[in-house]
Write a protein that binds this DNA or RNA. Structure first.
Lengths: 312, 312
DNA sequence: CACTATAATTGTCCAAGACAAAATGTCAAG
DNA sequence: CTTGACATTTTGTCTTGGACAATTATAGTG
């Protein structure tokens, strides 16, 4: 009895809840105080114990938050309503008009099938890989990155939100795409042209797919890149930029990046960089980026990378 | 004056301090209360503001903690002493004798030069890449992974701890190695043999290098692998294992993984997995793994992967 | 020397309060 | 109908100080 109870009614403490939902401990506690949800049980010591189902619901809510919904609205909603909201694909955002990361509705690629989703659903890893490879070969790296991948990414993301896909399936998909891009980049001749671009992600941002996509586009144009992976401390981004005398620092922000921190983080980095180094920011997490900041350029879409490297 | 002061005296709030040091907010606060360090300044609102130098020192201390030192001992130490401790390579651990992840002193590879470190120091990305490629071609993937990489990793880690290498240089090195391994794995025929192995990392563990190294060794032997990248929720690891009917789940833990959480996490996952699925754990973070746990096998070194896939 | 009991160390949790930034609502003027 | 200025609500994160379990060190005993 004192042993670990398995799947159905398993309980997790607040630390695990934080890690599995992406919501901070403080947030979890304050939601409980204010909205009455989540409502964890307590152990003998008074510590919170979250049932698995509440964790699942919290994950769904986190996803909605990332899409611009607000806690007060979605907490009282029923499970069914939540599902509808997220699958309904309603960003509910005061989107700044030039959204283009998601599939541009006017699909420039005469709609390719995108059978990857089906392959994922039937747990067929080989098929996912093969499909991606085929499509890459067929339409070329440029369109694969600027066109197909964004569409596929939102497709997969929506399927997950709608409960049609498990997290591990999204993980698997991401890994495959990452491996594919790395392979593609490695097969290109190393870029040497200017501007020299340093690519990375700030602390708190794990997602590195955006970085890889940009790196692919740049390498494709013969531009020299230097990739530092994810979560480089700001101070080290600046240090690296100086040491390698790059012309541009490019950062990617996913929609999971806390919007509140975007502006301060960018501003802080900007102040640490030499003035002559340009700073590009892009990704779904930059949609809410407020106002122009001097010395910071926001890439509204992947296709805007091209023009930037050949200044008029 | 009220503007942002740049590099030398830049101040960061507690959230950033947490992300950049890897120490929790609670820990930062309680250290301050108990040991008098760190001693952040305060903004107008009473919120903590950590100077850059304290962040640096905290990072160094975190590194020592991961090596088994205790806060009470290292907090009062001088900067010089800290440097000595970490570069002195003294694990100070009640190591369970069979440590082998680090360079085995009896270098089985007749010491290759390992010039990567020098190349890193002089900011020569191309040289790092070339050196790695040359060594891989020369000694082959197996020895590259089991022998050279572990040595190189500790070499780089120690150099960082000794203050000879910046974080961004370590980041760059890691990215290169990852890209190289992914490339090497992709160039091998996809594994099909049994056992089928699911590779990933638990939430909280970002480092994916260990996973890639194991994946390379497995693929080299024709074993089928399924890689989910980093930080898969436990529940989803179990779900993926079931959906893909794998025989083994393999987890990698870096030394940065909080030792306290290792046993509960592993135990929790074990209880969610079907009994017939084997669970392998490995990496520097598993050195302190206490006692045998039924159904869990700890890989004491990369070379112990081989024997496991062909049960006697 | 091995073992055990006691004490110190250490990370994490809790509660309730506070506040700034952002979102939202209101109202009037163009 | 839109725009802008202002007031209000919402929301996340930070604060303090206390508590406790789990680990590790120390002393004491056979």
């Amino acid at each position: 009895m004192a042993v670990n109870d398995s799947a159905p009614g398993s309980l997790v403490n607040i630390a695990v809840a934080e890690r599995e939902t992406g919501l901070g401990k403080d947030t979890l506690r304050v939601w409980e105080r204010r909205y009455g949800f989540p409502r964890p049980r307590r152990d003998a010591h008074g510590d919170r114990l979250y049932p698995r189902e509440q964790i699942t619901r919290l994950r769904l809510m986190k996803r909605l938050l990332d899409n611009g919904h607000r806690p007060g609205r979605i907490v009282p909603a029923s499970d069914a309503e939540l599902q509808e909201l997220s699958s309904g694909n309603v960003p509910a955002l005061p989107v700044s008009s030039d959204l283009d990361y998601a599939a541009s509705q006017t699909a420039s690629t005469p709609d390719l099938p995108l059978n990857e989703l089906a392959a994922l659903k039937r747990h067929d890893p080989t098929a996912v890989r093969t499909l991606l490879l085929q499509q890459l070969a067929r339409i070329g790296l440029e369109r694969f990155v600027t066109d197909l991948l964004p569409r596929l990414n939102t497709l997969i993301g929506d399927a997950w939100a709608a409960g049609e896909l498990a997290i591990f399936q999204e993980h698997f998909y991401t890994e495959q795409v990452k491996a594919l891009l790395i392979q593609a980049i490695n097969n290109l001749p190393a870029g040497t042209r200017r501007p020299r671009v340093l690519l990375t992600t700030v602390p708190g941002e794990h997602h590195v797919l955006g970085v890889l996509m940009v790196e692919a586009l740049l390498t494709l144009r013969g531009v020299g890149t230097l990739s530092l992976g994810a979560q480089t401390p700001l101070h080290d981004i600046a240090a690296a930029a100086a040491a390698h005398t790059v012309d541009v620092v490019a950062l990617s922000f996913s929609s999971a990046f806390p919007a509140r921190q975007l502006t301060p983080v960018v501003s802080e980095l900007r102040s640490q960089l030499p003035a002559e180094v340009r700073l590009w920011i892009g990704g779904m997490g930059t949609l809410g980026f407020q106002g122009p900041m001097t010395g910071v350029e926001r890439l509204s879409s992947l296709s805007s990378v091209g023009p930037l490297i050949d200044p008029v």
